[in-house]
């Protein structure tokens, strides 16, 4: 059974139809990619799968459960985390504080007055563990707004990862990155792939080909192809 399944998703904003009859499934422990040109509806699809928007028609199932009209925070609590295309960090928090608020152990005790977050050593252990994974443990105490671009991008992923999700949605993680940063990001995503089911939106087909098990192509709000990267590449002409 697929971990997440969307059936017959329609979405329009005013007169503009943005998604039309979208069917897509994501298998557990796979890394799925979504490519498509500007304005194809990729981010909108993420927004629907993560509870930011509700579809006009269609259903979303997570782990067999219908989550179609769940709120954002409910979807998040079920184990779906995301990063954002436009950077979305807590800028005045340090890197480690960004991670700490996202930890399930903090969330589960959100009304516990007597837990002291910054001095709680179990919380520190967990937060440093996440920071180490994304290579930011050395800048743990730097405020997010003072981190260089690539590190901010990594932290963006780290915050999503910190919630220990079953499923991780990354919206154009390579945006604005140079090729060095990109190859580091590839390493990171390949590592994460071992522990969580991932869906990545990308413009850049080359990046996806290196990391994805399966890629879906979205155009004008419709999925026009889904296949393994090498097969898709073979049909590249068709797609263009």
């Amino acid at each position: 059974m697929a971990l997440l399944e969307a059936k017959g998703i329609h979405k329009r904003f005013g007169q503009q139809v943005v998604l039309e009859k979208v069917n897509i499934t994501f298998e557990e422990n796979q890394l799925s990619g979504i490519v498509g040109p500007n304005g194809a509806g990729k981010t909108t699809l993420f927004n629907i799968l993560t509870g930011q928007h509700w579809p006009d028609r269609g259903k979303v199932f997570f782990n067999g459960k219908n989550i179609t009209r769940f709120s954002r925070q409910r979807v998040a609590r079920m184990g779906i985390a995301r990063s954002f295309q436009i950077m979305n960090l807590f800028d005045d928090f340090t890197a480690i504080e960004n991670i700490m608020v996202a930890l399930p152990n903090v969330r589960q005790r959100q009304f516990n007055m007597f837990m002291n977050v910054p001095t709680d050593s179990a919380i520190q252990d967990e937060a440093y563990e996440v920071l180490r994974r994304i290579g930011l443990d050395k800048v743990a105490r730097t405020e997010a707004k003072n981190l260089p671009y690539g590190k901010r991008r990594a932290l963006e992923i780290g915050v999503a990862l910190a919630s220990k999700p079953r499923m991780l949605f990354l919206d154009e993680p390579t945006q604005g990155m140079g090729s060095d940063q990109m190859s580091n990001l590839i390493d990171l995503v390949l590592k994460l792939k071992e522990i969580v089911t991932i869906v990545v939106i990308e413009h850049d087909m080359d990046f996806l080909v290196e990391i994805a098990d399966v890629i879906s192509v979205i155009l004008w709000g419709q999925i026009i192809a889904t296949d393994a990267p090498d097969k898709l590449l073979a049909n590249r002409g068709v797609l263009q």
Partner: peptide, 16 residues
């Protein structure tokens, strides 16, 4: 303090 800085992100972390 999180929601002060970024409400959307805070929702997506599962907080009301």
């Amino acid at each position: 303090q999180s929601l002060k800085q970024n409400e959307t992100r805070t929702w997506f972390l599962g907080y009301n």
